[in-house]
Design a protein around this nucleic acid. Sequence first.
DNA 1: CTCCTTTTTGAACGATTGCTCAATTGCGCC
DNA 2: GGCGCAATTGAGCAATCGTTCAAAAAGGAG
Lengths: 201, 201
Amino acid sequence: MARHARYDRKTALEKAVCLFWEKGYHGSSMKQIEQALDMRPGSIYATFGNKDGLFSEALAAYAEQGGRELAVHLKGFDSIVEGLQDYLRAIAYSCSAENTAPSRACMIVKTLLESSNTHPALAAQANSILAAIEQSITELLEQASARGELVQSVDCGRLARLLQAQIMGLRVMGERKLDPQTIRDLGDDMAAILDDFRTRH
Amino acid sequence: MARHARYDRKTALEKAVCLFWEKGYHGSSMKQIEQALDMRPGSIYATFGNKDGLFSEALAAYAEQGGRELAVHLKGFDSIVEGLQDYLRAIAYSCSAENTAPSRACMIVKTLLESSNTHPALAAQANSILAAIEQSITELLEQASARGELVQSVDCGRLARLLQAQIMGLRVMGERKLDPQTIRDLGDDMAAILDDFRTRH
DNA sequence: CTCCTTTTTGAACGATTGCTCAATTGCGCC
DNA sequence: GGCGCAATTGAGCAATCGTTCAAAAAGGAG
């Protein structure tokens, strides 16, 4: 053996997520990255290859954490649909609160919009993550449907995309920094959309 | 008098809109701008000040055109609400068609997300445009309400923001380049949301 | 044609970009 | 304590960034 690695890959990635989420790919220079990670260029390139590689890993880490947060959130609810409704309200709440998060908008959406016509590899990654999220929501809704939470005519994939679009729209509106109550009302209104698809008890 | 201006400011701006809408602010270099406008740096700087000034004017031109398109669209409908519903479907249709447009996502949203933590002046401009759009939709809904198209309990400002968020979400989803029919279904589902707020005849 | 004004040109600037690599540092092992 | 490996350093690379400005070009007036 020889010298120990001074940097923990995971914590370095967390810091990279923070910077990239806040400023985007083009908006984050290597100089800023060096400062944020407290690493010198050589170490960064030895660990992550190049800026693209670092961004790609950061985006994947962001998506994974987002997935975990949704799963944790849903565990607090017996009803899947009610869990999803409250998830929308929770997003609205986090958008309205004084927030230490790097940004209110979704990093995946920011990446998609920034890279779709300038950086095909990143755009493809963002697209595949969004497709995976759509698929997860679809499966959740299919579970809900099997449990009788949804009216029988519901097309779960289609509703999943409607829900995904709500999340996107809500988080973009969050970036506008409207009144807290205004954003929370928007979250409530979006949650209410799902009521149309629920079965009445 | 002396030499004529070889470039028409308006057509130059149209070309700038195309480039910036497609690639964003950071993604468009001055070299690309020179090529797109067929102008040399000196002329560009003499006409628009600098890159920021050009982008700012392009964004304003984009917003103005978008506003005109909405107004034209609504003229085809007796009912304001039906016009708005069809507007959502039209967006979905344009997102699904083989498209010559620079991007499917909204340039204002792209600008907001790209600049919110890197370029405060641009973010402020995008924010004020979005606020103006919200206001326009609010006024449209208030007209509709006065005409008895909406149930009386509707908060028009709140519904306007819900509608604005739909448009944002729809156009981000458009950037994912899903099946044409899938996007059109999403547009239909969003249009159907408005049915909940309409009066029955 | 000659001036005069205005527009256009494009070489070139300093700053910054992403990135490299020879030199240095620090730890474990014999 | 000195050797050797691996991680870290940071000066510096070529390329590109946004921008400038002196010179050239082009039309109208006399």
